[in-house]
Structures are given as structure tokens and as C-alpha cells.
Amino acid sequence: MTTELYKVSARILLLPTLLVALGVMVKGYADPGDGFSAGVIAALAFALQLMVFGPGELDRLPLIRYVPYAVFLGLIISLLTAFVPSVMGQTLFTHWPPAGDSAPRFGTLEFITAVAFDVGVFLIVFGFGVGVLSSFARAEGRMRTSEERVARARAAEGEAGNTT
């Protein structure tokens, strides 16, 4: 099932896919795209690795163990953008800078609090996707090894039965 072609293309595709995810998130403020779709794309990049290489190989990628915790980080970032304005006496989710004002820029990137919210959404979706996929993969792996063990034990029993 897993040929060399799959393996090579999966490996080559990982970084470009993550870059596309970043692009989708950044351009989301003027064109279609946002943190949610970026999160899905980034999680799909890891799903591909998982399908081709299996959970063991995926765990060797740097920082992958901490990705599921991104859900909490993302949730807290998003909640902060919602609730910090209310601490400062405005309504929930009041964004900064207010409508009509110009935002600080870095190239074409504009820094507004809506971006922080979207980064939070990205982290939630990405962390959830990778976390769920890898925990399913691990459960599946565990089941397979235990099934193999049972089969091997049965085979050994059968042999023992044949010799006696």
C-alpha cells in the first residue's frame, strides 16, 4: 500500500502545505480564508504524514507531542480577545483599533485584534485535528499489536497441539 512514491511525496508536501495554511490565514483579512480553514489545511498536512508513515514515525517530528495542547492555548487567546475589552469597560469582542482608524502594518499584514482571535481559532482547529488523528492512530496501533500477539499465541498453541 505505502510505496516509495507515497513516502517521498508526503515528505516533500509537509512544509509547503504548512506554508499554504499560513498564507490562507494571512490573506483571510482581504480575501477568502481564515484561521479555521488554515487550521484544517495544517492538520491535513499531518494527517497525510500519519497515513503514509504511521504514528511511530509521526511522533519523531519535532514538537508534535505538544500540538494537542495548542487547543488550550488557542482557546485562551480567543477568549482573551473577547473578554479583555469587557474588563476595559467596552462590550465583549470590541476590536482594536476601532473602525475608521488605521492599523499598524508590517508589509501587507495589518495588526488588529481580530487577527489574534483568528490565530486562536487556527490553534484550536489545528491542535484538535492533530490530537484526534494521532490518538485514533495510536489506539488503532495498539489494537493491531494486541491482535497480532493473540494471533501469534494461537499459532504457537496450534503448533504445540500438532506436535503432541
Binding site: Y69, F72, L75, I76, L79, F83, S86
Partner: peptide, 19 residues
Amino acid sequence: MMELPLGILWFGAVIVAML
């Protein structure tokens, strides 16, 4: 502060979920 109960529960739930 009409959103206070929601805020307490929301942040609290996220923090407790990590523990």
C-alpha cells in the same frame, strides 16, 4: 458586568480541562 458569570465559567473550564 453582565458577562462575568460566562467569563468565570469559560476561563475556568479551559484551565480545569488542562488539569
